[in-house]
Simulated scan of single mutants.
Amino acid sequence: MMEEECCFSSSDSFKEAEVGTPLSAVAEAFEELAKSLEGSSEDLRLHPFIFACSHVSELFGCLGLGFKFAEIEYVSKVNKLLQASKAFYTLSGIIDHDVRNGTVRKSGSHSRNLRRVRLGLDLIKALFEHFLSSKECSPKEAASNAYAQVCAPYHTWPVRKAVAAGMCTLPTREQLLLKLKDIDQSVEREMKRYIIASGPIIEYIDNLYMSRDICLDW
């Protein structure tokens, strides 16, 4: 696939979500993104993907200092993909560009940035799944399990050690609900919406790499 020029002008900006809480905003954005994949043979467009991903950074912020490492990493990569959207129209376009240039795994490449954003989406998904697994599950427990499941395999021992120490600063369940401007009943509903909607997006990104014989162990 040849490199594609983005159809969005520099004056384009993300549409503000007409929803009341951070959770409902991210759930709605990913539901819209998932709908665009249903029954379509077209590649996922980069700009709508970035729009949906932009909402997730606020969720990282609600987790406080314990997840500051993830917030900084995630926001940085999303911003770099936003810059890439000036030259590329689809997710497959940026991967194919790096495949042709042998830069898929190179630090700072678009494909590597996309891979890191994908890990961020999966981290939030896993955190929500653990959080909803039991009324007794604290944000610290949910976050620790999610990190061990999604990110730890790709981090060095010093990074894993630092993250473990930071987990002690995560908010309580009540504090998290306050940060999310939500209550238990609606939190469960919105988290489930994100889990369901983000699954196909994460799978789609993985398939983009695997269809080009790119291993996902990085």
Rank of each mutant, 00 (worst) to 15 (best):
residue 1 M to E: 09
residue 1 M to A: 13
residue 1 M to P: 08
residue 3 E to H: 07
residue 4 E to L: 08
residue 4 E to Q: 12
residue 5 E to M: 04
residue 5 E to I: 06
residue 6 C to R: 08
residue 7 C to P: 11
residue 8 F to K: 12
residue 9 S to T: 15
residue 9 S to E: 14
residue 13 S to C: 10
residue 13 S to P: 02
residue 16 E to P: 05
residue 20 G to N: 13
residue 21 T to C: 02
residue 22 P to V: 02
residue 23 L to Y: 01
residue 24 S to I: 07
residue 25 A to D: 06
residue 25 A to I: 01
residue 26 V to H: 02
residue 27 A to V: 07
residue 28 E to M: 13
residue 31 E to W: 06
residue 31 E to G: 14
residue 32 E to N: 14
residue 32 E to S: 11
residue 33 L to W: 06
residue 35 K to P: 04
residue 35 K to A: 13
residue 37 L to H: 06
residue 41 S to M: 10
residue 42 E to G: 06
residue 44 L to W: 09
residue 47 H to G: 00
residue 50 I to A: 05
residue 51 F to C: 08
residue 53 C to L: 03
residue 55 H to F: 12
residue 55 H to R: 13
residue 56 V to S: 07
residue 56 V to W: 06
residue 57 S to E: 14
residue 57 S to A: 15
residue 58 E to M: 10
residue 59 L to R: 02
residue 60 F to E: 00
residue 63 L to T: 10
residue 63 L to I: 09
residue 63 L to F: 15
residue 64 G to E: 03
residue 67 F to P: 01
residue 68 K to F: 12
residue 70 A to P: 03
residue 75 V to Y: 08
residue 75 V to P: 05
residue 76 S to R: 15
residue 78 V to G: 10
residue 81 L to D: 02
residue 85 S to F: 01
residue 86 K to Q: 14
residue 86 K to R: 14
residue 89 Y to N: 11
residue 90 T to G: 03
residue 90 T to C: 08
residue 91 L to F: 03
residue 97 H to I: 04
residue 101 N to H: 15
residue 104 V to D: 02
residue 104 V to G: 02
residue 107 S to H: 12
residue 112 R to H: 06
residue 114 L to R: 10
residue 117 V to H: 09
residue 117 V to Q: 10
residue 118 R to K: 15
residue 118 R to A: 11
residue 119 L to R: 14
residue 120 G to V: 04
residue 123 L to N: 13
residue 124 I to W: 01
residue 125 K to P: 03
residue 126 A to I: 00
residue 126 A to H: 00
residue 129 E to V: 07
residue 129 E to Y: 02
residue 130 H to D: 11
residue 130 H to Q: 12
residue 134 S to E: 09
residue 134 S to N: 13
residue 136 E to D: 14
residue 137 C to M: 15
residue 141 E to I: 11
residue 142 A to P: 08
residue 143 A to I: 14
residue 144 S to R: 11
residue 144 S to T: 15
residue 145 N to S: 13
residue 150 V to L: 13
residue 150 V to C: 12
residue 152 A to H: 05
residue 152 A to T: 04
residue 154 Y to P: 04
residue 156 T to R: 03
residue 158 P to Q: 05
residue 165 A to H: 09
residue 165 A to W: 13
residue 168 C to I: 10
residue 169 T to R: 01
residue 170 L to S: 00
residue 174 E to Y: 02
residue 174 E to L: 04
residue 179 K to M: 08
residue 180 L to H: 11
residue 180 L to A: 11
residue 181 K to V: 08
residue 182 D to Q: 10
residue 184 D to S: 10
residue 184 D to L: 07
residue 184 D to V: 06
residue 186 S to E: 12
residue 186 S to Y: 12
residue 186 S to M: 11
residue 191 M to K: 04
residue 192 K to A: 09
residue 193 R to D: 09
residue 195 I to Q: 09
residue 196 I to K: 13
residue 197 A to E: 03
residue 198 S to P: 04
residue 198 S to N: 05
residue 198 S to T: 13
residue 200 P to F: 05
residue 200 P to C: 05
residue 201 I to V: 15
residue 203 E to L: 02
residue 203 E to N: 03
residue 209 Y to D: 00
residue 210 M to K: 14
residue 211 S to V: 01
residue 211 S to W: 01
residue 212 R to C: 01
residue 213 D to M: 10
residue 214 I to M: 12
residue 215 C to R: 13
residue 216 L to C: 06
residue 217 D to T: 07
residue 218 W to A: 04
